[in-house]
Amino acid sequence: MKLTLLAGLLLAVIIRPAAAQSRLTGKILDAATGQPIPYASISVLSTTAGTTSNAEGEFELKAALPGRLVISELGHRRDTVAVAAATAPLLVRLQPASVLLPEVQVGSYLGDLIAQAYRQLRRTTAKKMYGQAFYRQITRIANDATEVQEMVWDAATTNAGMDGSAIVTGRFAKKMKAQISFNNFSVFTKRFGFNMKDDSLTQRGILGLNTARFYTLSLLGVTQSEGQQLVEIGFESKPGLAPLTAKGTLVINETTRQVLHLRFETPDLVNVKTNSLVSLVVKLKDQHSVFEMDFQPAPNAAVLTYIKVDYRASLAVPLQRNVAIQASSFTYFYNSRATPDASVTYAPAKGGEVDLALIKQTTYDPAFWQNNAVVKRTPLEEQVMKSFEQKGAFGTMLP
């Protein structure tokens, strides 16, 4: 799903075996407020090992120690921390980056900056990165977790989104009496991104040469980071002009013209593929979706680090009260390198794919999931996963 958004449409880290690896845990906090910093990037200097913090700022990874961790997040100053041994959880406090809040918008500055970022993206989007991705999805009905699935992919990415993938392993479980389940939710992750295929003069995505014609733009702030300026731009579609009713934010490095973050919110997403016990009469109302992509700056082209998808709706069944539905996924990309694995076919997503069918093509190995380092789950996620594991739901692959 590209950012014309084609309608129709936590985490674990596999670390390559290394000598004297230790299990390191910790938490990332804002030094000024003391609040957790979610989705901060944590990498081991001079290695491919890394992870990201969860929604509560916690992280976990395996690394050869002693070593140095590099921690970064867009709104904070990058920090490097020396770690001698994993004797206790690590507490890292990141200093907030200085933010300038402009009082006025300056002429066509925002539209011009987006157009420059678009040209930069078109010049560099052919530069692919190859590595692994870990995908976790949790579906909730009336706030009760009814479906969980996890997949590891070999993945090809660009600075516009995912380019292709091949499943390595996966597991799936759901409650037998769940009113509804999502059979291809991962396609939202695989297809979400910036549209680089349409004619640049006519395309109406939020990254293009004519963005200001179709979206109302606002300058939200400028962050000073390591001698460069990160410009945060708010956008909202103009009625009748943009392809979808949408709003959100873009973060662009003013120096390199690299797009580093996108948050895209829309109520217009339709044709969500589901399985339902009441498929003939069930209706999904009040649909609302939020997509996020995050990139790490790099010399040639920004490198994709994660994609978040959050879908919410109301399940309307005749003669019953509406029920809240939520499906959320988080995909983390790691071990990125410039050369592909010759044994892997990185295939683009297909519209008719069914996640469970793909997972069933793999062999379920409980030890694999127990022994791999996992980016620390939140307490709620931990509770959900253990409840399914204790019932043996993953091993039996409930239909």
Rank of each mutant, 00 (worst) to 15 (best):
L209K: 06
G227H: 01
T274K: 08
M196S: 13
L280D: 13
K238F: 01
F185C: 04
V270Y: 08
K283T: 05
A242M: 08
V290F: 06
T211I: 01
T256A: 04
S237C: 01
T169M: 04
L230R: 15
F192P: 06
M196K: 13
L201S: 11
S181W: 15
L284H: 00
I167S: 05
G227S: 02
G240F: 09
N183W: 14
S289D: 11
K285D: 09
I206H: 12
N253I: 08
L244M: 08
V282C: 12
A178L: 08
V281Y: 07
T211H: 04
S200L: 03
I252D: 00
I252P: 11
K285Y: 09
N183I: 10
P243R: 03
K177D: 15
K197V: 14
Y215D: 01
G248W: 09
K283Q: 11
G240R: 11
V231D: 05
K190I: 00
V251I: 13
L230E: 04
A242W: 13
F188S: 00
R257I: 09
G221R: 14
V282E: 15
L250C: 04
I167E: 04
S200G: 01
T223V: 12
S200Q: 05
T202C: 01
M196R: 14
P239H: 05
S289M: 15
Q179R: 11
V282R: 13
L230D: 04
K273C: 03
T223P: 01
I206V: 15
F192H: 07
L280N: 12
K190L: 10
K238R: 14
G248L: 03
N210L: 12
G240A: 05
F194E: 02
G248R: 06
K177G: 09
I167Q: 03
L230Q: 12
G170Q: 01
V278P: 06
N183G: 09
K285E: 11
M176V: 13
T211K: 00
L219P: 11
G208D: 02
E254V: 00
F182I: 03
I167H: 07
V290G: 06
K238N: 03
T211Q: 02
G205N: 06
L207W: 11
L209Y: 11
L277I: 10
T189E: 09
H288K: 15
N195D: 14
K190Q: 03
S237P: 05
S276L: 02
N183V: 10
A212Q: 15
L244Y: 11
K285M: 10
L209F: 14
P267E: 00
F291L: 06
N210H: 13
R213Q: 10
K285V: 07
L209E: 10
N195H: 07
K283E: 02
G240W: 13
F192N: 02
N253E: 07
L220V: 12
P239R: 09
G234Y: 06
D286Y: 08
G221S: 10
E226D: 15
Q287E: 05
G208P: 08
Q203T: 02
E254A: 09
